[in-house]
């Protein structure tokens, strides 16, 4: 009974985390599902979003300005990865890893920034206390009934993000990004500059991821240099969990994005359960990696071993965007 009670009390927190990481998962959905690219930039750009947002907030900027700056910084990170991938011809995964690594240094510098002409160093953590600063969301009020509760605000962010993306991917430009992920050869034959659309997708995705990072920094009251470690795996977990559980119901594009958010929420609820059951926090990443590996493997095994007479199974590494987006 005690167990259930503490679990119940942790649900609002799981919901808040899930909504924030849900925005991140939507970013991963754009690259992994729509563009058919596994973009590892996100581990870095999530922290960049957090760092930029925290830095600006500490220096007195409004939450809106801080978050917009975070989005811009994330988009820039996506642009760099896109540049590595298209202009320099580096494979997408490696491009993302390069940017992510570079961002680690950059994030330390961002958080250590004191001002023009000051003796700027590096910092691994930057606190943004809700006592001192004007924050949009804070986990402190997660169980409060009132306007300062972060959940409605986060829900609005999720809904607006999905609405904007639903509109965008219905436009000519958005369609050309979807076409690029579906068939690059065909896209070029139809006059689509696939390098441009690939970069645009990466920019968009990392903008969302950085927004999620900015919200997370506010929510937990600090930005840290390793807040994005393993983010790609959490994002993938959310996308896959959402798809496995809800994917069979409706195939509307907006709902598919929403499923990724649901996936993130479920991920954090499950996390709370296993933590309450006594799992060490340090073992979480191991658990997450295993869960994602299994969920990625199952459709492949199904295609390979359990469907006699089926056409040749898909290549394991390439199944990202095919058949779903």
């Amino acid at each position: 009974m005690d167990f259930l009670l503490t679990l119940f009390r942790s649900m609002p927190g799981a919901l808040g985390q899930g909504l924030i990481w849900g925005i991140m998962a939507i970013g991963v959905y754009i690259t992994y599902k729509i563009l058919d690219v596994a973009d590892l930039t996100v581990d870095g750009s999530l922290a960049t979003g957090g760092a930029v947002c925290a830095l600006l907030t500490v220096n007195g900027a409004s939450p809106a300005v801080s978050l917009l700056a975070a989005i811009a910084a994330g988009m820039l990170a996506g642009l760099v990865t896109g540049f590595f991938h298209t202009f320099c011809g580096i494979p997408a995964i490696l491009s993302g890893i390069l940017t992510q690594l570079a961002l680690y240094s950059i994030n330390l510098r961002i958080m250590g920034w004191e001002g023009w002409g000051a003796d700027n160093g590096t910092k691994a953590t930057l606190a943004v206390s809700v006592d001192k600063h004007n924050l949009l969301v804070s986990s402190r009020y997660i169980r409060e009934m009132g306007p300062e509760n972060p959940l409605p605000v986060l829900a609005v962010f999720v809904v607006v993000a999905i609405a904007l993306l639903y509109w965008f991917f219905g436009t000519e430009l958005g369609s050309s990004i979807r076409a690029t992920g579906s068939n690059r050869n065909m896209s070029r034959a139809q006059g689509i500059n696939t390098n441009f659309t690939t970069v645009l997708g990466l920019v968009l995705s990392n903008g969302l991821v950085a927004l999620s990072g900015g919200l997370l920094a506010q929510y937990q009251g600090s930005a840290t240099v390793d807040m994005g470690r393993g983010a790609i795996v959490i994002g993938l977990a959310a996308v896959i969990i959402g798809e496995v559980i809800f994917g069979r119901f409706f195939h509307n594009f907006a709902l598919k994005l929403l499923y990724a958010v649901f996936g993130a929420i479920i991920y954090y609820i499950v996390l709370q359960v296993v933590l309450r059951l006594g799992l060490d926090t340090n073992d979480l990443k191991l658990l997450t990696a295993l869960v994602v590996a299994v969920f990625l493997a199952v459709p492949y095994w199904k295609g390979k071993y359990f469907r006699p007479g089926a056409k040749s199974s898909k290549e394991p590494a390439q199944t990202g965007g095919t058949g779903h987006a």
């Binding site: 958005g174 979807r178 689509i192």
Partner: peptide, 25 residues
């Protein structure tokens, strides 16, 4: 494009050689 609808594929082809902007696809 296998993951897109028949009409979406045709719409992509109908915009060959044109700038693709923020009008409906």
């Amino acid at each position: 494009a296998p993951t897109m609808q028949i009409e979406e594929n045709l719409a992509l082809a109908a915009r060959r050689g044109q700038r693709r902007g923020l009008k409906w696809g």
